[in-house]
């Protein structure tokens, strides 16, 4: 749980587009988010919702072209990251904010030992250290993620998938970042390995008091690891709140639909109740609420304008004009 309520990063009205041959893909459409020190925020959404774009946007790693950060502000330690010069940004990457990518198989350089790869990031941010200090530091990092320091001179192909992901986490946490962006860190892993890795991340996070943005499509992973949850749909945050607010009182129709889509181990359901249809074409988003074409609570007003994120109590924000109806529906669902 959050120890302090001190704000760490604040994203304001972030818009990111990709300019492709087929038109402009509106990947993020005014995302605003705040993360507090030490907190874990789950960012949940489907393929193409803009989850990865958001994480890469924070680090300014959007490939340009085709990507363009159109407008917005990202406040981190009193500075707007989008205004910083590139060299200042490089100092932040890996040092204050680091990122874990989804695929452990391709995130490591196959011709460098894992030790060298960990040392690389440490050296980048601590050029004054000598060889021994670097070695000691990287060994300590490996031990921290549960790999014996004897293996420091081995190459990535000598590690299994779960072990590689541990190495990647060691690299990400090597400089004790304040914020860790984890993009589906366990999706490529088997469940028993996933459980090990998540457990390890949880322990390390607590030890280092790192804030984390956990990007995932797996609501189960969110429920067991996060303090707060943001649901993202077609480049917009549609619902954000504390873990229990989202899971116990889901209010946006999309959140409700997601929760009804997963076959549950806890309950027996004869038939799933999925959201109908598909994500809209990001080059041609519907006017008004982007979820309206798939929504079962839709009314005429939905298409007229983009609904605002409204606080429905205790910081639980929902982007829906029919939140009263959806809430009463959700409460009968149980």
């Amino acid at each position: 749980m959050t120890e302090t309520n001190q704000e760490l990063i604040r994203i304001e009205d972030l818009f990111i587009d990709y300019e492709t041959d087929d038109g402009i893909v509106h990947a993020l459409n005014g995302v605003s988010l705040t993360l507090h020190v030490g907190e874990t925020l789950g960012l949940v959404g489907e393929t193409g919702a803009g989850k990865t774009t958001l994480a890469k946007g924070i680090l300014r790693l959007i490939p340009d072209p085709p990507g363009k950060i159109k407008e917005g502000k990202i406040w981190f330690e009193g500075k707007d990251l989008l205004e910083l010069p590139e060299h200042a940004m490089q100092e932040i990457r890996g040092q204050s904010i680091s990122m874990i990518f989804q695929d452990p198989m391709t995130s490591l350089n196959p011709v460098m030992t894992v030790g060298e790869q960990i040392q690389e990031v440490i050296r980048n941010h601590n050029p004054e250290l000598d060889k021994e200090e670097l070695h000691a530091w990287s060994c300590a990092m490996l031990e921290k993620v549960g790999i014996s320091a004897d293996r420091i001179d081995e190459y990535p192909h000598q590690f299994s998938g779960g072990m590689k992901q541990r190495v990647i986490i060691a690299i990400a946490l090597a400089c004790n970042p304040k914020l860790l962006l984890a993009d589906e860190p366990t999706t490529a892993l088997d469940v028993t390995i996933q459980a090990q890795v998540l457990d390890m991340i949880r322990t390390l996070k607590q030890e280092l008091n790192t804030a984390m943005m956990l990007i995932t499509h797996d609501l189960g992973v969110v429920a067991q690891n996060c303090n707060r949850v943001a649901i993202i749909y077609a480049g917009e945050i549609v619902e954000i709140g504390d873990l229990r607010q989202i899971f116990k009182r889901p209010t946006h129709p999309y959140t409700i639909g997601l929760l009804e889509s997963i076959p549950s181990l806890a309950k027996d359901v004869e038939r799933l109740n999925p959201v109908k249809g598909m994500m809209p074409d990001p080059t041609d988003l519907p006017p008004g609420c982007k979820f309206a074409p798939r929504c079962k609570f839709v009314c005429e007003r939905c298409a007229q304008r983009v609904p605002d994120l409204i606080d429905i109590g205790d910081g639980h924000m929902v982007r829906c004009i029919n939140s009263k109806d959806t809430q009463s529906y959700a409460s009968t669902r149980e």
């Binding site: 469940v191 996933q194 609501l219 899971f247 181990l265 806890a266």
Partner: peptide
């Protein structure tokens, strides 16, 4: 162990994980 490792999408679900050592 397999059953206990599945993350259940319910914050109130009792987590009683049997963490396995090592990998396949």
């Amino acid at each position: 162990a397999l059953l206990s490792a599945i993350p259940v999408p319910d914050p109130d679900f009792p987590v009683n994980r049997i963490l396995l050592e090592g990998e396949l």
